[in-house]
Amino acid sequence: MLILLFYIGNIMYTIKCEKIREIAPMVVLKDIPHTPDFFAGYFNYRGIIVPVIDLCQLVQGRACEMRLSTRIILVDYKGKNDTSHPLGLIAERVTETVRKPEDAFVLPDIRSEQAPYLGGIVMEKKKMIQYIDLDLLPNCINFLPGGD
């Protein structure tokens, strides 16, 4: 299975590529007032309005550094009634993908109450990388369409 590696600060995270629609460069986003800090704004993606979340802000409480390698990962997530919604995730150093067998994904028993979407672990060269579970992410960010 192909996974995308990226960074939030100095820590590497990953996401499964099967959920990814496109990796877009950083663009100007439409800022919406009175939304949480991690909500970066709306992205005009080929005429579709896509909400974009700043993963650095969500996980570490500071905005992503604006570098060439900072990109928007466009994903599709399943909301209520199995409807699919596009979502953008800003992350740093989005430059690499690797292949991993299915059994490299481990789900530990411990789950963070605050961030259950960061539960799983992938082993890569003896390093542990947390992967972002897209099925759980929208529920944690309850203002997204299709969340609970």
């Binding site: 877009a24 950083m26 100007v28 005429g47 570098r67 430059t95």
Partner: peptide, 25 residues
């Protein structure tokens, strides 16, 4: 090569890409 991508965004970079990404593919 990766370090080349660790540069700050050039001017107009975001604006140019905003237009490209907003256009129909």
């Amino acid at each position: 090569g990766r370090n080349l991508l660790e540069r700050n965004l050039p001017e107009e970079y975001k604006n140019e890409w905003t237009e490209v990404m907003a256009a129909k593919k």
